[in-house]
């Protein structure tokens, strides 16, 4: 069986909102170390994953490894019935075909229970090479959302150039072009005027072109974290990571656009 009590429903609500438009259904993999998920979108361009470690729950009990097939649209609707500050208890009894979600209000005077039907999903797991990235950018997640939204008005893709100076996002379209440069905070020629919280750690400069449609989907995870880590190497998928407090993370991998 699985019983996992999450002190704040808002965390689970935000996680589901940040993947439901990329993946329609997937298995939640539960083990004694926590709850995780990995799935690609239908076009095999973006992979979404998350991990919530067992110690983020209080208490957490999972007797054996489980794969629980969830339809995100249903889970999202049910989680809308939970208050942000409610406690959520996720419960699965062995061999059942439902997952129970119990929401308890902060004063414990209102307890609601919803059951969601589980699906039998034959999911494919991808093995992601464990690699060192040539460039690691860390920046404000709300700034990242704003840039993706602004550049979407210009074009369908963005070129991200990361150099020692900072990180530049550029888009070109039929009607014109636009770019935003975020300088590294605290760099010498930018003292006191840098955008707070931008850092670039690099082995060599990286330039990648990415679909803005996907990036705008990833920004739905911004409410989970003040910052986003963008890990890049030339010519390979980019990894975006939003930390979920100190209990886990959401990661997105996005295949780049390659020059013909």
């Amino acid at each position: 069986m699985l019983e996992a009590r999450l002190p704040q429903a808002s965390i689970l609500k935000k996680i589901v909102e940040s993947v439901k438009d990329l993946v329609s259904q997937a298995n939640f993999d539960c083990s004694d170390s926590g709850i995780s998920f990995q799935a690609m979108d239908e076009s095999n361009i973006a992979l979404s994953s998350f991990l919530l470690r067992a110690d983020g729950f209080d208490p957490y009990r999972c007797d054996r490894n489980l794969s629980l097939g969830i339809k995100f649209a249903s889970l999202s609707k049910i989680l809308k019935c939970a208050g942000n500050d409610d406690v959520v208890i996720i419960r699965y009894m062995d061999d059942a075909d439902i997952l129970s979600l119990v929401f308890e209000s902060p004063n414990n005077e209102r307890i609601s229970e919803f059951d969601i039907k589980l699906l039998d999903i034959d999911s494919e797991y991808l093995s992601i090479p464990d690699q060192e990235f040539e460039c690691k950018v860390k920046m404000s997640s709300s700034e990242f959302s704003r840039i993706c939204r602004d550049l979407m008005t210009i074009g369908a893709s963005v070129v991200i150039d990361a150099t020692k100076e900072g990180v530049k996002f550029s888009a070109t379209g039929d009607d014109g072009s636009g770019s935003v440069l975020l300088k590294q905070s605290g760099s010498i020629d930018n003292e006191g005027r840098g955008v707070v919280g931008t850092s670039v750690e690099m082995v060599e400069p990286v330039s990648l072109e990415l679909s803005l449609k996907y990036l705008n989907n990833f920004t739905k995870a911004a409410p989970l974290s003040d910052s986003v880590a963008i890990n890049m190497s030339n010519g390979i998928p980019v990894m975006f990571q939003f930390d979920v407090g100190d209990i886990g993370y959401i990661r997105y991998f996005l295949a780049p656009q390659i020059k013909d």
């Binding site: 361009i45 893709s157 998928p237 991998f253 295949a255 656009q257 390659i258 013909d260």
Partner: peptide, 14 residues
């Protein structure tokens, strides 16, 4: 002009 790569070009199935 550029074209969208697939993740399957980079990641393998387990």
């Amino acid at each position: 002009k550029s074209s969208q790569a697939s993740l399957m070009n980079f990641f393998s199935k387990k």
